[in-house]
Design a protein around this nucleic acid. Sequence first.
DNA 1: TCGATGGCTTGTA
DNA 2: CTACAAGCCATCG
Length: 194
Amino acid sequence: MIFLKSTVNVVIISNYQINGLFFSIGISSITGKIVKISLPHQDETKAMKQISDEYPNYEVSEKYEDLVKKITPLYAGEDEKIDLKILDLEVRESNESPIKTAFMRDVLVETSKISHGKVGTYKSLAEKLGTHAYRAVGTALRKNPFPLIIPCHRVVRSDLTIGKYAGGSEMKKELLKREGVTIKGDKVIIKNIF
DNA sequence: TCGATGGCTTGTA
DNA sequence: CTACAAGCCATCG
């Protein structure tokens, strides 16, 4: 009897701290790609928990510290270009997969095209995808595994009010401000939307 | 499988 | 300005 070593997908979590904020990323040991990144937290365990909750089979390592470090300027509002190839954007039904449907992938890819300092709306994204599923665009973005890299904070309501955000509307506003977007009260002031 | 639930939008009052 | 209702459609339990 030959026993093959099973290829278990362990997610490697690496952390980085800057200005008292903790960022975590999870990388698949099989694909080497990012399966999830956390929003910044004041508490390291909370940042890590965002990943470990979804990927219980994980290990903590400093292996990808340089990579998680590259994410942090995005939170500062810098226009950092990050290659989407480092993300696991492949559609797979397995629950090891961050993206299970083509619709979600399409929403994320379309969102990634919104450039620094610009905003799109749930409606404008839906229309680019050729559907009227505005709400579904919202639900897809709510589950965005790659916040900051896939800039879901740049997607607002079609009346240009800020809309919701996993990290809270205040953080969404703050991120947009740092990117140079003018915000008055609860509304984005911008001429042309994506 | 099917009804309930959304990071929504539009219309009406 | 606020408050609903109805429409929308992918996802979840």
